[in-house]
């Protein structure tokens, strides 16, 4: 493992840990409003200050981490499931199957993502679950293409021929010799995908189309804070910084993994 991957995974790990341990990290209820305490700057009792309804921003931030990170993870999981499945089928079988799947990918790619998302939200209504599904359904095309290309190139390699010489059955060749060798790009894509999904969620929530208040996410905390940007800087700084850190750490992890899985770089 290289330094980039390690740094990225430590920061990302801390964020995930924060999200998991949210109830242990704060004594405030993220929903509890205390109008008398509204718009308090950061202090000993409210670490990150309070918002316009007097809610503790620190609590909302760490519960928001739960939302944002789980949206990232689940959306990417969905995208990987669809993308790896379709990409692998296209790559393995080639021919007309490949043609049908890849033309379908092309069609999905021609639809502007934002437009598709807005359409889907109109039909499905804004909610955390829908945001996850929508992001998942719109971001699998890249991974399908990557996997198809990987499978096609690995399929041609001599060690797959060598496995045929042993007489292994096709499913053993796929399971033992092809799949393990294409998992690298999948992991790399996943980490980039997570940061992409976190950004997407923030954007949607910022527009009011994502996670709905009072449920906190980094995106909608940012939206709530934008009206008070001149008087209460902490309402935008912390969610902004959190989104930045999460995206940065997952990207770092992705870059590191990309180098790690590249055997040519590893040999040095």
């Amino acid at each position: 493992m290289n330094k980039m991957a390690i740094t990225g995974s430590i920061i990302a790990g801390l964020l995930v840990l924060t999200a998991i341990c949210a109830p242990q990290l704060t004594s405030y209820d993220y929903k509890a409003q205390e109008i008398s305490q509204r718009l308090q700057p950061p202090s000993g009792s409210h670490l990150f200050g309070t918002d316009e309804l007097g809610r503790d921003v620190f609590s909302r931030m760490i519960y928001g981490a739960r939302t944002s990170i789980s949206v990232g993870l689940i959306a990417v999981f969905l995208a990987v499931l669809i993308g790896v499945g379709l990409g692998a089928i296209a790559g393995f079988f080639g021919g007309w199957i490949d043609n049908v799947i890849m033309r379908f990918v092309d069609i999905v790619l021609t639809i502007p993502t934002l437009f598709l998302i807005l359409m889907l939200i109109v039909f499905l209504g804004p909610s955390i679950t829908n945001v996850m599904i929508i992001i998942g359904l719109t971001s699998w095309t890249d991974i399908a293409r990557i996997i198809r290309a990987e499978v096609m190139s690995v399929k041609k390699l001599a060690y797959v021929d060598a496995a045929r010489l042993i007489g292994l059955r096709r499913r053993d060749i796929i399971r033992r010799h092809i799949l393990p060798n294409i998992m690298g790009p999948v992991f790399v894509y996943m980490t980039f995908g997570i940061s992409g999904a976190i950004l997407m969620e923030s954007g949607l929530s910022f527009l009011g189309l994502g996670v709905q208040p009072p449920h906190p996410s980094w995106g909608n905390i940012l939206t709530g804070g934008k009206d008070y940007i001149e008087s209460a800087w902490w309402l935008v700084l912390y969610p902004g910084a959190a989104i930045f850190t999460a995206v940065f750490s997952f990207n770092l992890l992705g870059e590191g993994l990309r180098d790690y899985f590249n055997p040519k770089l590893r040999k040095e």
Binding site: A158, D161, A162, H177
Partner: peptide
């Protein structure tokens, strides 16, 4: 059949021992 491309004809994720055990186990 023995290949010219020695690096390419071995699965990069299999240790030598596993690569040699595979045909034995199978046959």
């Amino acid at each position: 059949y023995i290949f010219q491309d020695t690096l390419g004809s071995l699965n990069p994720r299999m240790r030598v021992g596993e690569a040699l055990a595979e045909p034995l186990k199978y046959h």
